[in-house]
Design a protein around this nucleic acid. Structure first.
Lengths: 370, 370
DNA sequence: GCGCATCACTAATACGCATTAACGACGGAG
DNA sequence: CTCCGTCGTTAATGCGTATTAGTGATGCGC
């Protein structure tokens, strides 16, 4: 009983929807008097080893044109064993209601680069709320539908994520991240950027510089400290622990008195770490005001990052900007190489120095004034 | 010589790319000890004629869960099924560099509603520039990968679009549109909104109201005029052509003299159409200023829409807002019903009245002053 | 004139999933 | 005990395209 059954298959419901009159390669082939494979070859248009006679080529193209043939993307992607989709998984709404939401600039770059690389994007919706598919731990699995996935936000469940990574599914996290071993990421080069800020201050003539940072061991913090320390060392200025003021609650621990004391000791410039709250920068600015120290005149203040949104309108602090769009683009590039099975390039993206208006040369003889 | 060749097929290069550990139904089947067909049946979850024992069912579900199985959208689509994806095709960058870009609020609603309806979104990239896949006429065709597609922007190539529509592919245009016959769209109800603005003015006591509009026959313009005319008629005020001032170049044709003349004739309120440039509103405001007519005091001005972005900071004009997020949501709902093969609901979304500060009761005896 | 390499094209898959005819097992009716 | 349903499952397709092995037909060298 080995002979084939009469005919299985589905036979597609008579009143089915799909079944458009859209021509297939097979129809084009019939009209051109060639085989479907030939049509595929011609339409693929590969210059390489194009073993197709010009005559046949034209017949096919004419037939395709006259029938108005358009390839079926689903079939194309199925046969290609890749679907040309990159997932974007954010753990809040991808289009946030809050206009100032920080994801947005990333996405600008993500979209541009995805377009450039020939990928479309899948936005997994309802990652936070009860949206499509299973919410909760299972949600991340949906990412597998794409060829690879971009992760935004730090709330990704580590275990689920590890699963993906271990399975060899291409994932790139936007922002430095160590947690699941082997997770690829792209991030801003805070070390170099911080170093440059110090370099500029030193070039202006500052000889004693203090870093104000919060009590947090996130990479974003420690990188800045490292860059700062490298900077002061390179400039031959006093570094080490004495140059770093680390506090849990800047607003409270960094008052005008403390500031005056530093100034009396010859400190002429301060550098604040950037955090979500911007607490360090706020405290520094406030302390300077309260101490009656005018900013670019009496002391110089710099911020290792961008000012918090609510201060965006004020005078620009000296510091650097994170090129978010470029970061997004870099993430896509990295993801694309992973999908292609190639090696990962450097995950760091350079920040751009922002001159700002909060720094200047140190006062001539501030020590006397104090 | 009918016996099958040894083995053709592609055999897929050994170091092939795609081929991640992405599990297939076949793997799930092997793990569960059943056939691929059974897996498909279980995962389809059809209650109808579910000739699957509960035991088998659980085995399959467990296996799928432990492997993190996710169906391949392309294959699903090719097999004439749904893949739970809705496309979004915009004809500029979807994430515009310009933060104030008008698409953004739509997308907020689109994402929310898509999540609510259980769909993920595919952003087709590079619709404007040379992005993914074939740019140009073929680009729109990529949409067929999804179950249906949303269109933003008026630059969609009509022919390609017609093709999709004719093939019965579910497409919804965001914004009223007649061009390809049979294209579904959702739009704001400018008629009702404009009518209401007039109603409010009449309620304030205005007896002569003039509509200032540009020389454009876009639906957005004619709808507003129609609403305006319905409004004045309903209020028993003078309508018809005399009540509508139509001009190609408002800045030039609508000066202070013209305004004073109207006022002398007893006109106490003016209504401006909203356009991209906001020319009508600008001209009206300027003419009022130049004529020395104070706005809420001497005359009332209303705008049939939202003020142009550059005037967003100034005093709010009376008028209405287009609920963009709701429009986006409505578009998704409509698209979902089309995908489901159901009938399309009402495509109009109500605008919300904005009281603003540019209207008030008419002055007691303005005629004497003039 | 006989291999042998080229060339131009076609046959036969594979891709992953949905669908449906068919099949084995079991049970009750006759 | 045989026949026929029922139930649960599987084999065998099809969707439309890409890929590759294979097949004639030529041309070429010796």
């Amino acid at each position: 009983m080995d002979e084939p059954r009469k005919r299985a298959g589905r036979g597609r419901a008579p009143a089915a929807v799909g079944r458009t009159g859209r021509p297939r390669q097979a129809e084009v082939a019939r009209l051109a008097g060639v085989s479907q494979a030939t049509v595929s070859l011609v339409l693929a248009g590969k210059k390489q080893g194009a073993a197709i006679s010009e005559e046949t080529r034209q017949k096919v193209l004419d037939a395709a044109g006259s029938l108005g043939y358009v390839p079926d993307p689903a079939a194309r992607r199925l046969a290609a064993a890749r679907n040309g989709l990159l997932g974007v998984f954010s753990f809040t709404a991808t289009f946030p209601t809050d206009v100032q939401h920080s994801y947005y600039p990333f996405l600008v770059g993500v979209e541009q680069e995805a377009a450039a690389q020939g990928y479309d994007l899948v936005l997994f919706t309802g990652s936070s709320r009860g949206g499509a598919g299973a919410t909760g731990p299972q949600a991340l699995n949906r990412a597998r539908l794409a060829d690879g996935c971009l992760l935004l936000g730090r709330h990704a469940p580590v275990d689920e994520l590890r699963r993906l990574v271990d399975d060899g599914f291409p994932v790139v996290h936007l922002g430095r991240r160590d947690e699941p071993e082997g997770l690829a990421w792209v991030g801003a080069d805070y070390v170099s950027a911080s170093r440059e800020v110090v370099h500029r201050l030193a070039a202006l003539g500052h000889r004693r510089i203090i870093l104000v940072r919060e009590d947090d061991d996130a990479p974003a913090s420690t990188d800045r400290e490292q860059g700062f320390l490298e900077g002061v060392e390179a400039a031959g200025l006093p570094g080490g622990h004495a140059a770093v003021f680390r506090c849990a609650d800047p607003e409270r621990e960094l008052g005008p008195e403390r500031l005056r004391q530093w100034v009396a000791e010859g400190v002429t410039a301060f550098v604040a770490e950037e955090t979500d709250s911007g607490a360090a920068w706020r405290a520094l600015s406030k302390a300077a005001r309260d101490a009656g120290l005018h900013c670019p005149g009496d002391i110089s203040l710099a911020l290792l990052g961008s000012p918090p949104p609510d201060l965006a309108d004020g005078p620009q602090p000296t510091g650097f900007d994170i090129p978010r769009a470029q970061l997004g683009a870099a993430a896509v590039r990295l993801l694309a190489t992973l999908v292609a099975g190639e090696d990962a390039p450097d995950p760091l993206v350079a920040c751009t120095f922002r001159p700002g208006a909060s720094t200047g040369p140190p006062p001539k003889a501030l020590g006397d004034i104090a």
